[in-house]
Amino acid sequence: MRGELAFHRVSRVEACCRPLDWAWPKQNRAFVEENWKRRTAGKPLMFNGRVLLLQDVAFEQDLCRSTYFEVDYADFVAWIDKGYPDPTIANGFAMGALRGSDGAYLCGVMGQGTTNAGRVYFPAGTPDPTDLRPDGTVDLATSLTRELAEETGLAEGEYRVDGEWIIVQRWPTIAFLRMVTLPVTAEEGAAAIRANISRQEEPELQDVRIIRGPGDIDRERMPLFLQSFFEWVFAQR
């Protein structure tokens, strides 16, 4: 069932983008426009570009297939702020589960100029047209490393990415995670990321949180899917 929590471990993720005439934002245009004005007040960095939302996801043994479509970011944000009124679509994104060599995890604290200011989660972002390839496929693996670089300043040679995907399905959120391991401890990794974001002109993160066990799960600032991921991963230790 789409509303139930599920975890899937697969070695392959195949994603594509197909046109979809999404009715909900058209039927709620006044709310979308007013909501965008409210959301962008005092946040000049917010931009109404195009993003990719998930219209379907399916699992076949060791493979996950997903289908996306393009929408305005303002439509996407309005759908979230209205409480996900159209249950047929989801926010499906790639995310690096960043951890140190000691096994402790590293989450970012989103900056005040971002849509999710103050929220705590792994570096990630909703896919956008830059993740599209000429054949219509969506490159989630590159989306993951790009977001990691943009938010933390870490380059691909500074960590190891596992080949396996861990997919946390908590509709309307689908997180496509891969373990990303640093060659240094979480404390050292956090120090390096803080140094990186201090040099960024417009950083997306304001700080870094280290998650060592269930007691570090932030029930107020972490999205539900991430709370579930940490509960699941720590239960296996």
Rank of each mutant, 00 (worst) to 15 (best):
I210Y: 05
N196R: 10
R209G: 09
L177Q: 00
G153H: 01
T152Q: 05
E201Y: 11
I211N: 03
E201C: 09
W165H: 07
L205V: 03
P203R: 01
A175Y: 04
E188V: 10
A190N: 06
D207K: 01
W171D: 10
I211G: 06
G189M: 07
Y159Q: 09
V168Q: 07
P172A: 03
I167Y: 08
A186E: 09
R209K: 13
G163S: 08
L182C: 02
T181G: 09
V208P: 06
V180D: 02
I197M: 08
E164L: 15
W165S: 07
P172G: 02
R170E: 15
V161H: 09
F176T: 02
E202T: 11
R209T: 09
V208A: 09
A186K: 08
S198R: 13
V161I: 12
L205K: 06
L205H: 05
M179N: 11
T181E: 09
V184N: 11
L182H: 01
W171V: 07
T152S: 07
P183W: 02
P183I: 02
V168N: 07
Q169G: 12
L182E: 03
I193F: 01
I211Y: 01
E204N: 12
P203G: 05
I210V: 07
F176I: 03
P203L: 03
L177H: 00
Q206D: 14
R194Y: 02
A175H: 05
D162E: 15
V180C: 10
E158M: 08
E151P: 04
L154V: 05
V180Q: 03
D207F: 04
Q206T: 14
E201R: 13
T152F: 01
P183K: 03
D162Q: 14
R160S: 13
Q169A: 14
I210K: 04
I167N: 08
E187H: 15
T173G: 11
W171K: 08
Q206M: 15
R199K: 13
T173I: 14
V184Q: 13
V208G: 09
R194A: 03
D162S: 15
D162R: 13
V208D: 10
N196V: 06
I174T: 11
D162I: 08
E164C: 14
A190H: 04
L154K: 05
R212F: 08
D162M: 11
